[in-house]
Design a protein around this nucleic acid. Structure first.
Length: 553
DNA sequence: CGACTTTGACCCGCGC
DNA sequence: GCGCGGGTCAAAGTCG
């Protein structure tokens, strides 16, 4: 039985473009089909009429239970009807799954046909029409809530599915880890899968492999359940002014859409979806943007390049406008055809800051040392996808920026989205990890290195570090403390100003509420600190040397 | 000799 | 159409 409902909201739900497969509403609302959107969602886009839901049916031929829900569309009348100034509204009102089947067919003359001889019944007809409109609105609201419910159930199912898959992988691999480690691995892998579904299968295997080699990757304080939920949320941003608008609920769409249009957020270049072909094209564009999503990491380093565990080959260097320092272009050479590129450039304002911009996903297994940074880019890209995919109304959402601004209201953002970049870009500013100094907020990450290096040797090992984080229930402050960063509640810093305490609390709440962000941040810090720690052992890293001197001073 | 870097040329998109 | 800027290519040079 193939009873599918394709849904289209006037203001397309950003989740509509979610890369993950979405549930298809069945007549039995408790069941789902895990099919791709492209394949199964029937999309029909018309000129906008506010607060309208168009629901087309597909399949179910000859099925007596077939329910057809069509839009009452005043704007799709063909030319002939328009010329006659009349609109014949043909409706088939759908029944919904939990309701008695009922099919109503009405032929309604809107009364706008001036050639008609009857004028006395116009007001009655209008009243009937209005009543029908109200019914349709109520029905639309019901369907909206049904869809939301379906999405929620879908997320839960998705979570269970991936947990199950990971369990199978671990069993197959004959993993000899302890049950606790296995459980942690599940969390990591599920999280990673949701960060980069395109690599899900590969990453599964890869993580299972690397977990035995690299215990560091087992300890990400990520709650995969949270990742799923959060990644579906769809805040919005004013792309031109960086104005943040919380838009986590579908109910806000009309308001936001209206606001966007009236305030000029929406570029004229935003494509209008006039046909399913356009929507398909838009989908391809989205895919392209997914591929082009970038993650920029700012970190203090005197080295020419951050060591991220991957093998890179320089293929170009250019002088970029507005920066006296050249920009170097690298591509990953760990596998032929790996699409990952990175750009390395020093910050024009502060040349001790190295800006590394990653683009793309690796198409090959990564060495343990490279997993963290790769996870960072995947996670950040995932955030872009889940939170900032341009919706049909052309707005860029910014859960990320919202989070960052909430977290660090008095300082430049720890993380931000670039509104001007040609491609969606997340910037992780790891040079500003000092919650102890609100006025400057400039404590460089190098001090994080240094602090971690001052810990007893056995405390610096990453499993221990992240074990602490886990014990603090995915607490960002816990992470910072474990990395040696002074925090308001840390023993070495009891003199924190109350205002700063509040801010840090807000930051903690905001950051911990977004596990994707936490994942990205943790991975980035992990990577850099991991490298720092490695360099410390090697004793040949200028950054480490400098960091130590920083600490001593 | 192979891998990597350097660097000028080229391509392409965008704005005027 | 033209210029500009970002990104990539590829030949030549360098290094181990």
């Amino acid at each position: 039985m193939d009873k599918r409902l394709g849904l289209f909201f006037d203001t397309l739900s950003p989740t509509f473009f979610h890369p993950f497969t979405k549930p298809q509403l069945n007549s039995n609302s408790s069941s789902f089909q895990f099919n791709t959107i492209k394949k199964d969602l029937t999309m029909d886009v018309h000129a906008a009429a506010p607060d309208r839901i168009l629901i087309d049916s597909a399949g179910g031929d000859g099925d007596s239970e077939k329910r057809v829900v069509n839009e009452m569309n005043f704007f799709a009348a063909d030319d002939h009807k328009e010329k006659s100034s009349s609109l014949d509204v043909k409706k088939e009102i759908a029944s919904v799954p939990d309701r008695d089947a009922q099919e109503i067919k009405l032929d309604i003359n809107t009364g706008l046909n001036l050639s008609t001889t009857s004028t006395s019944s116009k007001t009655d007809q209008m009243a009937v029409l209005r009543a029908d409109l109200n019914k349709m609105n109520v029905e639309n609201q019901r369907l909206k809530s049904l869809l939301n419910q379906a999405n929620n159930d879908y997320r839960a199912l998705q979570m269970h599915l991936y947990t199950f898959m990971q369990r199978q992988h671990l069993l197959k691999a004959g993993n000899s880890q302890s049950p606790e480690m296995v459980k942690r691995n599940e969390g990591v892998t599920v999280a990673k899968q949701f960060m980069d579904l395109g690599q899900a299968e590969k990453d599964n295997h890869e993580l299972v492999q690397s977990s035995s080699e690299n215990t560091r990757s087992q300890e990400f304080p990520i709650s995969p359940e949270n990742i799923i939920v959060e990644s579906m949320e769809t805040p919005k941003i004013n792309n031109n002014t960086n104005e943040i608008v919380a838009l986590d609920r579908l109910d806000n769409r009309e308001e936001i859409s209206e606001r966007a249009h009236t305030s000029g957020w929406i570029s004229n270049k935003v494509p209008k979806f006039n046909s399913s072909k356009d929507v398909e094209h838009a989908s391809e564009t989205m895919t392209s943007m997914i591929r082009k999503a970038r993650v920029s990491v700012r970190a203090r380093s005197e080295a020419a390049m951050i060591s991220d565990g991957c093998q890179w080959r320089k293929y170009g260097q250019k002088m970029a406008k507005g920066n006296p320092c050249p920009r170097a272009y690298y591509r990953c050479t760990m596998a032929s055809g790996c699409p990952v590129r990175k750009q390395v450039q020093r910050c024009a304002q502060d040349r001790t800051v190295l800006i590394t911009t990653y683009e793309g996903n690796h198409n090959h297994p990564l060495p343990p040392a490279a997993v963290s940074m790769a996870s960072t880019t995947s996670a950040a890209a995932s955030m872009l996808l889940s939170g900032s995919m341009p919706s049909a109304d052309g707005m860029m959402s910014s859960h990320f920026s919202n989070l960052a601004k909430t977290a660090l209201p008095f300082s430049p953002s720890l993380a931000s989205l670039s509104a001007s970049a040609p491609f969606p870009t997340v910037t992780l500013d790891l040079t500003r990890l000092n919650p102890n100094n609100p006025s400057q907020f400039q404590r460089p990450l190098s001090q994080v290195h240094a602090a971690s290096q001052n810990l007893p040797l056995n405390s610096v090992t990453m499993p221990h570090v992240f074990g602490q984080v886990n014990n603090e229930s995915n607490n960002f402050l816990g992470l910072l403390r474990s990395l040696g960063v002074e925090t308001p509640h840390s023993p070495q810093n009891q003199m924190q100003a109350p205002a700063a305490n509040d801010t840090i609390s807000a930051a903690t709440a905001a950051i911990t509420s977004d596990p994707s962000f936490t994942a990205a941040l943790v991975a980035a810090i992990t990577s850099i600190i991991g490298n720092s720690h490695q360099n410390q052992h090697n004793g040949n890293n200028s950054t480490s040397t400098r960091n130590n001197s920083d600490t001593n001073s």
